[in-house]
Simulated assay, not measured.
Amino acid sequence: MSQDLTTQWLTEIQSLKQQMIAIGRDRDAAWESAEKWRKLYNTEAEQRRTDTQLSQQAIASLKAELQKVQGLDTQALPDATAVTAIQQEIEQLQSVEELKTKLVTAIKERDRLLQALKTEQDNHAQTRDNLTTALGDAIDGWTRERVALEHDTQPTL
Rank of each mutant, 00 (worst) to 15 (best):
Q3L: 10
L5R: 02
T6I: 07
W9I: 15
T11I: 06
E12C: 04
E12L: 04
E12G: 04
I13S: 12
L16H: 14
K17H: 08
Q18V: 12
Q19M: 08
Q19K: 10
M20N: 08
I21M: 05
A22T: 05
A22Q: 08
I23G: 04
I23Q: 12
D26G: 03
D26W: 03
R27G: 06
A29L: 06
W31R: 02
W31K: 01
E32S: 12
E32P: 00
E32K: 01
E32C: 04
A34F: 08
A34P: 00
K36F: 15
Y41W: 12
N42H: 13
T43P: 01
T43N: 15
A45F: 13
E46T: 15
Q47G: 09
Q47K: 13
T50V: 12
T50G: 14
D51V: 12
T52I: 07
L54R: 03
S55M: 12
Q56M: 10
Q57L: 07
A58C: 05
I59W: 02
I59R: 00
S61P: 02
S61C: 09
K63P: 02
K63L: 15
A64R: 10
E65P: 00
L66G: 00
Q67H: 11
Q67T: 14
Q70T: 10
G71E: 08
T74H: 07
L77S: 06
P78E: 13
A80P: 13
A82V: 05
T84L: 06
I86F: 11
Q87K: 12
Q88M: 08
E89K: 01
E89F: 09
E89V: 03
I90H: 01
I90E: 01
E91V: 03
Q92S: 11
L93T: 05
Q94N: 13
E97D: 09
E97P: 00
E98H: 02
E98N: 03
K100P: 01
K100M: 04
K102M: 06
K102T: 08
L103S: 02
I107N: 00
K108F: 11
E109M: 10
E109S: 10
L113Q: 12
L114Y: 05
A116M: 09
L117K: 01
L117W: 05
K118T: 08
T119Y: 03
Q121C: 06
Q121M: 07
D122H: 00
D122Q: 01
N123V: 02
N123D: 09
H124S: 06
A125D: 01
A125G: 02
D129C: 07
N130R: 02
L131C: 04
T133Q: 09
L135A: 09
L135K: 02
I139L: 14
G141N: 08
W142T: 05
T143D: 11
R144T: 03
R144D: 10
E145Q: 06
E150Y: 07
H151F: 09
D152K: 02
Q154L: 15
P155E: 09
